[in-house]
């Protein structure tokens, strides 16, 4: 069990610090590359193109992602549901903590 635990922790560390930084370093390069390769006809790229991708969820790759610390949960669960109520019952002082 201890081994699986350490493995999980390693993978979470990797998720935060591991892969993505290389991706971040790559991102601007790819941009530059495509600009350099583009021929004259492709020189004028409609700037509106970005707008279409705006609807997507924020990703780590978007270097112009909006600076928001506020957290949004896309889908809220229905908290009048008995099972859900029961699941966090003991997180309140009114819960049953003799268990």
């Amino acid at each position: 069990l201890a081994r699986t635990l350490s493995r999980r922790s390693a993978s979470l560390m990797q998720r935060v610090y591991g892969q993505p930084p290389t991706k971040l370093d790559m991102a601007p390069e790819q941009n530059n590359g495509s600009e350099a390769n583009s021929s004259d006809e492709e020189f004028f790229v409609p700037k509106g193109q970005r707008k279409q991708t705006m609807n997507e969820l924020p990703t780590f790759d978007d270097i112009d992602a909006e600076d928001c610390s506020k957290f949004f949960k896309e889908k809220l669960r229905d908290w009048s549901n008995e099972d859900l109520i029961h699941s966090i019952r003991d997180r309140f002082v009114t819960g049953n903590w003799s268990k």
Binding site: A27, P28, D62, I63, D64, A65, D67
Partner: peptide, 9 residues
Amino acid sequence: LSGSRYFRQ
């Protein structure tokens, strides 16, 4: 750095 993200931080 590049891009406008995490501007404040």
